[in-house]
């Protein structure tokens, strides 16, 4: 007897389904932060090499995302937010997603090595392994701190972008890495607070599910407090100018206010619309775009003396 899922699989997956496997919305943030790392570096890079570096970062992130969806197809099927993805909806065979992910990952590392540098290729390979294996397979189903350590995977793009331009790892790209690393927990836990029921249903030990909302709100505040001085360090060590310094102070101050607001409140019953948590999540996305945008603007306008 054929099920709706087997009927759906009898048609081949379209190119749109393969594209959806790469998580294009996440990829925009990856491309943006990678590009910012590249443009904020004190060395001008050949435009073709720069394009190849960003392309490989994006394709590598897409490959890791496809592998993540291949591994988590059963979990995705149980959550409202993810049940329409190509695998849980039955539009694609699991093996196709796995092969697609492996191919994109391998191709991105090879082209990065041949076109940019083997140091960048090694870091990219490490970031793909970190996301697809360390985070997806190992940490996410085992520990409520999954997001903290897993956040490292999303922190690689500006590091790779910077190293593509300069050819070596220094303090500044490590600081960019640290900014995204510290930003990820409050960003993701804000989301986990208002989709808590979904994570609980599929048995993923997200902090709100395992430790409760009160602890989650405290942890969000702790990471936001730690994030503030890290965002200001590039200014304090003289690697950026006043435009970045003022922007980082303002943005991090506002982000801290969001975290304090979320920390001070409790869920008001099951009908609570969780507005402060949703606002903090939305602001966290804007925060990262604005902070890295300010970093690039500072490099191109203030540091060369265009603005005083």
């Amino acid at each position: 007897m054929s099920t709706p899922q087997s009927q759906a699989v009898s048609l081949p997956a379209s190119w749109r389904d393969f594209f959806a496997l790469t998580k294009p919305r996440v990829m925009t943030l990856v491309i943006f932060t990678g590009l910012c790392g590249l443009l904020a570096a004190p060395v001008r890079i050949n435009p073709v090499v720069g394009f190849v570096a960003i392309l490989c970062i994006a394709v590598g992130a897409g490959g890791a995302a496809a592998l993540n969806q291949w591994w988590e197809a059963d979990i995705d099927a149980g959550m409202k937010r993810t049940r329409n993805r190509p695998l849980p909806s039955g539009r694609m065979e699991r093996e196709s997603a796995r092969d697609f992910g492996v191919m994109l990952s391998a191709a991105s590392v090879m082209v990065m090595g041949l076109g940019v540098s083997w140091l960048c290729a090694a870091i990219l390979a490490g970031s793909i392994f970190y996301y697809a294996v360390v985070y997806t397979v190992w940490l996410k189903p085992r520990t409520p701190q999954n997001i903290v350590i897993g956040g490292g995977a999303g922190a690689f793009p500006p590091l790779i972008g910077w190293v593509a331009a300069t050819g070596h790892v220094s303090l500044m790209p490590v600081l960019l890495f640290a900014i995204i690393f510290m930003w990820t927990p409050p960003h993701f836990w804000a989301l986990a607070l208002f989709v808590k029921t979904d994570y609980a249903k599929v048995g993923i030990p997200m902090l709100p599910v395992v430790a409760g909302e009160k602890v989650t709100r405290q942890q969000m505040l702790v990471y936001t407090v730690l994030l503030l001085p890290i965002t200001l360090l590039p200014w304090w060590i003289g690697a950026t100018g006043v435009l970045y310094g003022v922007s980082a102070s303002l943005l991090s101050g506002l982000f801290l206010l969001c975290a304090i607001r979320v920390w001070l409140r409790e869920r008001q019953g099951e009908d609570d619309r969780m507005v402060p948590e949703k606002q903090m999540f939305a602001f966290s996305v804007f925060y990262l775009f604005a902070l890295f945008g300010a970093l690039v603007a500072d490099r191109w306008l203030v540091m060369p003396g265009v603005l005083h």
Binding site: L11, P12, S14, W15, F18, V48, V52, V111, G115
Partner: peptide, 23 residues
């Protein structure tokens, strides 16, 4: 669907040729 996939694959291969030439 297969025609769409073939077009997407063809364009990707073409882009790879241009990319490798530029590199």
């Amino acid at each position: 669907i297969i025609a769409g996939r073939n077009k997407a694959l063809g364009l990707t291969l073409l882009a790879c040729v241009v990319l490798f030439f530029a590199i």
